[in-house]
């Protein structure tokens, strides 16, 4: 009975994520087509939430990094790293979906627009964050170095977000959070977009929960391996006894 409850507890993030995605998908399909973009607007219901979740993920990485630097508790390091990995996934997804939307709308897969270029730079900076973690074996040094990068890298988020306001770009300005109110007027479109953001947030929570569980087990494996008795260098090398046995064959 206890084991069953445990399994149920472990799987709840996946169930919640699937349910949220089904609701968001349904709403995005029944919402009306846009007057200008037509049905291509439906790609926005996954592209925009993916971009927002990238912001959220890297903000959580910042919080985890500050938490580690302040307390030296490894749980914060695991939170920062897990969130960064999920954030890299959402950033890559936002870029890919933007390209798929851009080809039929702009006529090109990619253009060196400020928003697109800065998002690509942000993607590679956080890939570098993950690479830095793989390159450092000592857990404390790894946590400290990546926490410093996790704090510094956050400066990109406001630059990426406001790039469409600060520079003249091909990418459209914000549709929801803007000084003169949301640009989307149809309530069903707003509901579909908000449902997408909520669904992606649930998926993000599920992914980070499982990724943190993985990080905790991996840390336990490393700690267990370190405690295993290992031969000291040179100890295993024993010179063979080559002296002939008395009375042995010659």
């Amino acid at each position: 009975m206890t084991a069953q409850v445990e399994i149920r507890d472990r799987r709840w993030p996946w169930y919640a994520a699937v349910s949220a995605i089904v609701v968001a998908l349904t709403l995005s399909m029944i919402s009306p087509a846009d007057a200008v973009q037509g049905d291509l607007i439906r790609i926005m219901y996954i592209h925009v939430p993916a971009a927002w979740l990238a912001y959220l993920a890297f903000t959580v990485t910042l919080a985890g990094s500050i938490g580690y630097l302040a307390t030296k508790r490894m749980v914060f390091d695991r939170l920062a790293a897990s969130s960064a990995e999920v954030g890299v996934y959402f950033t890559g997804l936002a870029i890919l979906l933007g390209m798929i939307w851009g080809k039929p709308t702009w006529g090109v897969w990619w253009t060196w627009d400020a928003r697109l270029t800065l998002t690509a730079i942000m993607f590679f900076v956080y890939v570098g964050y993950l690479a830095l973690r793989r390159a450092t074996l000592d857990p404390d040094a790894r946590a400290k170095r990546s926490a410093i990068l996790g704090v510094l890298a956050i400066v990109q988020i406001p630059i990426v977000h406001f790039s469409v306001v600060w520079w003249r770009t091909l990418h459209q300005p914000p549709s929801i959070i803007r000084p003169d109110g949301p640009a989307i007027q149809d309530p069903l479109m707003v509901v579909a977009l908000v449902a997408g953001v909520v669904a992606f947030t649930v998926v993000y929570a599920a992914l980070v929960t499982k990724r943190m569980e993985l990080a905790r087990i991996e840390d336990a494996v490393v700690a267990r391996e370190a405690t295993l008795e290992r031969p000291v260098a040179g100890e295993a090398v024993v010179a063979p006894d080559l002296s002939p046995e008395p009375g042995g064959a010659r």
Partner: peptide
């Protein structure tokens, strides 16, 4: 319009596949 649905389907496949 069917061309637009093809792009929407492609984007959905990329999302669910990834």
């Amino acid at each position: 319009m069917s061309g637009q649905w093809a792009w929407v389907t492609f984007a959905s496949l990329v999302f669910y596949g990834s």
